[in-house]
Simulated assay, not measured.
Amino acid sequence: MIEIIGGTISALIAYSLNGLVLKWKGRKSIVFLVPFLEEISKDLITFFLKANFIGTHLIFGIIEALYDWIYTKNRKAAWLAAIISVLSHSFFGICTYFLYLWTEQILFAIVIIGIIHSLWNYFITR
């Protein structure tokens, strides 16, 4: 249950901030800023709530999938985007969980997963 709360709060925070940075820096922020905002939001909330990283990331991914499904005009592309959102954010959650277990350093985990997320966004938007 706490993961649903954490994932929802982090999605609201991230999407609010994402909107601001998209207006400020344009499309390049999808690669250079948005991934870090999302990872900071998801992981700090998870850390402070003592929630499960994988669960919070999964909920965030589901919320992003709903957004993608609603706002993507092409229905085939919408389904694909939705599935990719759930899978990619779940993957980021798994990586964060194990990196944090290994290092016990949440900020280190955020930076590393933020870089991975940035690379993912770079390749997915090409």
Rank of each mutant, 00 (worst) to 15 (best):
L12Q: 02
I13A: 09
A14Q: 04
A14Y: 05
Y15F: 14
S16E: 01
S16A: 09
S16N: 08
L17W: 08
L17C: 11
L17F: 13
L20A: 06
L22M: 13
L22N: 06
L22R: 13
L22A: 12
W24G: 00
W24L: 15
K25S: 08
K25I: 04
K25P: 01
R27K: 13
R27L: 14
S29E: 08
S29C: 01
S29W: 13
S29Q: 12
S29V: 11
V31S: 00
V31T: 07
F32R: 05
P35R: 00
F36A: 01
F36G: 01
F36Y: 15
L37Y: 02
L37K: 00
E38R: 03
E39W: 05
E39L: 04
E39K: 11
S41H: 05
K42N: 14
D43M: 10
D43V: 10
D43K: 07
T46L: 03
F48L: 12
L49W: 08
L49S: 05
K50T: 03
A51W: 01
N52V: 11
F53V: 08
I54K: 07
I54D: 01
G55A: 08
G55E: 10
H57G: 06
G61E: 01
E64W: 06
A65F: 05
A65H: 05
A65E: 00
Y67G: 09
I70A: 11
I70W: 00
Y71D: 09
T72S: 14
T72R: 04
N74M: 07
K76Q: 15
K76F: 02
A77L: 13
A77S: 13
W79F: 09
W79I: 12
A81Y: 10
A81I: 04
A82W: 00
I83Q: 02
S85P: 08
S85I: 09
V86D: 00
V86H: 01
L87W: 12
S88L: 07
S90I: 10
S90C: 05
G93S: 10
G93Q: 10
I94D: 03
I94K: 07
C95A: 15
T96N: 10
F98Y: 15
F98L: 12
Y100T: 05
W102R: 13
T103S: 11
E104M: 13
Q105S: 10
I106N: 04
I106P: 01
L107R: 00
F108Q: 14
F108T: 15
A109F: 03
I110G: 00
I110Y: 00
V111G: 02
V111E: 08
I112H: 05
I113W: 09
G114A: 04
I116A: 14
H117A: 12
H117V: 13
S118H: 12
S118W: 15
